[in-house]
Amino acid sequence: MILHTVNRSPFDTNCLNDCLEMAAAGSSIILIEDGVYAALSKTQFTDQMLAALPKHNFYVLRPDLQARGIQDCIIDEIEAVDYSGFVTLCTELDKVVSWY
């Protein structure tokens, strides 16, 4: 299976949209860098994320949330991981597709 990474703000580019459209059911998606803003719980993207949650394994990189001060403002169901968790995902899954 594929690990998709999204590292741009959904407000700024179409990366999140493209990723959600192209990712196969059951694949994993991790939000990193400015991509973590897609995990916010009160935005225009929240519904889209909630709808996609059952189809994919969602993760968000904790250090990037903390940098931006939004760790308390994200959708509960998205799992926050540290760098080591990110590395584990990269090694466990067959390949990585970057949306940037």
Partner: peptide
């Protein structure tokens, strides 16, 4: 304006991404 408003969010702590906390 736009994503620029994120610059003013409270609680920023970029120590783990090894950047300066200019907030």
């Amino acid at each position: 304006l736009g994503d620029g408003v994120f610059q003013l969010k409270t609680q920023q702590d970029p120590s783990e991404i090894e950047m300066k906390n200019f907030s």
